[in-house]
Design a protein around this nucleic acid. Structure first.
Lengths: 198, 198
DNA sequence: CATATAGTTCAAGACCGCTTGAACTGCACC
DNA sequence: GGTGCAGTTCAAGCGGTCTTGAACTATATG
């Protein structure tokens, strides 16, 4: 909860002079924060989600400076956040013909990114756990005078781990499937906000 | 890692001298830590997982003091960890007839707990997000001169959130189903480590 | 009742990741 | 070349969580 919650500007968003540190409309602030919370829940940085959400809601590419002001973040922070998002392919850096600065636009792939990163994270992690349990088992087996039931329980623990792993994989798969439906919804806007926009 | 290393263990339970700060066998340490990592991954405290794992592997109930020594935790910490685990129903507090102290034994329900807590967490969380997005939408709609495409994107965002939510629910359900298979495996040991054991 | 041990609570502090802000690089334009 | 702005990097600070350790309560025992 960095910035203040800016309850002002009930009337006109465009017509009145907004306070220095953010012109975010209240409804935008709420939506942006909601996405921030979701993304944080999935183990990313809150502000990564906020930046993506802002770009997505605006529909047109913004500059780093604008993001900085809207979201009340530091220059350096914005730079790093944008780099992360770009690396993950959920935003795109574009340079408008006549323009001299970079602008950043949201891809629709937020979800694909989430599942993707989760997938990777899970892969490494699960491999590690599996290796550890295997190692434990190896050591335990080499221990001659080990009560049999202990070993037995260790093995069951490993089985459990495998099942959880399977469930996770399944989740990712179904999630992706389920989401592909959503993506198609998204897609019909892919061409941007038509022309009108601004 | 923590405080002092309790160089004690004159008893030497097994035949060889175990590492200074706990009598945990190496294989146990590895397995215990593996579970700790998993549990941490799921958003719990690492040491909650370690405690459960220790109790599970040992098969027989341990006292708080024993746990404290084996895992090299503080007295207060163990007390809190045990309370959490007990509240979640993944360990059971028992008092042996002749004995004066409480002992704690592992239930097999670790997974059920995980899914359960995730479920709860998810429920509250998702409700919050949903409410936030609804509120944002309400505010946005009341804003007369709002570009139509912006509102449109906000709506799609809400749709997306719903789908992710559905995927999550599905995951929990499948995970639970999948796990129930494992639980049956576990169950045949339900009666504990037979009697012998020690 | 005095003592000892088991168990609980919580303030202080360790720990860790995120954000900041300032120094720096790169680039365009004058 | 010099000035100014966009963008990057990173040490230092901040904020939040987890753990510790000591004071405290509860309970059993002689």
């Amino acid at each position: 909860m960095k910035g203040y919650l800016w309850t002002g500007g009930p009337g006109s968003p465009a017509s009145e002079a907004p306070p220095a540190d953010g012109r975010l409309a209240p409804w935008e602030a709420i939506a942006v924060d909601a996405v921030g919370n979701v993304i944080e829940f999935w183990g990313f940085k809150r502000n990564q989600g906020r930046v993506w959400a802002l770009l997505y809601l605006r529909g047109e590419p913004l500059t780093a400076g604008e993001i900085e002001r809207e979201l009340d973040l530091s220059k350096g922070g914005v730079s790093m956040l944008l780099r992360d998002l770009e690396r993950w392919g959920v935003i795109q850096r574009v340079r408008l013909p006549q323009d001299t600065v970079w602008r950043y636009g949201a891809e629709n792939d937020l979800v694909r990114m989430v599942t993707h990163v989760i997938e990777e994270r899970e892969a490494g992690f699960v491999a590690r756990i599996r290796a550890d349990l295997a190692e434990a088992r190896r050591l335990a087996e080499s221990q001659a005078e080990l009560p049999r039931d202990r070993l037995h329980r260790l093995e069951k623990m490993a089985t459990l781990a495998e099942h959880v792993e399977r469930a996770l994989r399944l989740f990712i798969k179904t999630s992706r499937l389920d989401v592909s439906g959503v993506l198609s919804v998204f897609r019909d806007d892919g061409s941007g906000a038509r022309r009108g926009s601004k």
